[in-house]
Design a protein around this nucleic acid. Sequence first.
DNA 1: TAATATCCCATGATATTCCATTTATAGAAT
DNA 2: ATTCTATAAATGGAATATCATGGGATATTA
Lengths: 158, 158
Amino acid sequence: MPLFMSKYTNKVDRKGRVSVPAQFRAALPAGFQKSIVMYQAVNQEAIECCDLLHIEKVNDSLEGFDPLSDEQHEFSLALMSGLVELTFDGNGRIIIPQELMEYAGITEYATFAGKGKTFQIWEPEAFQHELNKARDKVKEKRAMLRFRQNNENGGKGD
Amino acid sequence: MPLFMSKYTNKVDRKGRVSVPAQFRAALPAGFQKSIVMYQAVNQEAIECCDLLHIEKVNDSLEGFDPLSDEQHEFSLALMSGLVELTFDGNGRIIIPQELMEYAGITEYATFAGKGKTFQIWEPEAFQHELNKARDKVKEKRAMLRFRQNNENGGKGD
DNA sequence: TAATATCCCATGATATTCCATTTATAGAAT
DNA sequence: ATTCTATAAATGGAATATCATGGGATATTA
């Protein structure tokens, strides 16, 4: 299972093109390496990205609810209508739509940050701030994570 | 399960390459011997290293959180974006990213120190200092342990 | 026919691969 | 123990490949 990890900061050229880090392209599932899907991150001024397979799975799980409640209809509409699929050019670059660029405040450089099954694109300084914030919170709650891990592995006695 | 133990100091050549000790490479789990994953150690000026399998487990446990919660997003971003996966060249060497080299203060030589399930990479002198500190703490604790044992047996006069 | 997007190729920087040499390690023989 | 020998590991450098980036040319479309 390939994961998106690390962070890379790439230049947005004057035509609006950015290279998606080769590592991230390589981490896309087989058969889904031609494009990525992106949308506005919730509660963060960043662009959330994943592969098309991931979206298909999310959609399947939404349709699993039968019948769909009004809420679920609204939710899936809001989610799916906000998605953009971008295919790479021959050199692994994409052109991020203006709306998303503005949402994330990206101009000259874009920071690609791994999140496991997804990754995000940030304006570099904004990312640094977010990272500091997030790290503080992680330090606070690290104990909780350790507790869960120990429970999964260690508690398996019987 | 093989463990990372002992310590080795290797040279960083002018291209930034360092050999990962053969013993450490051999201790990587089967199927995960092509690379290691590293990140800034918390509360220490050192690089923390483990195998990719270890990371996949951590990521799985992260996904255990509510996928829509702010917490889950912050955790994954903070942890995963800070990771770097490095694959070995034909001779078992890696190139440590500049940012991590600077964080640990490594220039000419790097000390690999086993920690059991993980290992660390230090600037040699910094490691020596850390080791002295750690040994002092062990002494303290051992004294405390002896004290307890004596207290438990003590009344019985063996 | 502007304006925009796509394709193609060039380039410098960096990373990877490959091979040669040196150094360290382990075991056998003295 | 000490020396010798065979093997493995670490180190160095040159050749090669990959990647991010830039720009021109071609296609699309409004």
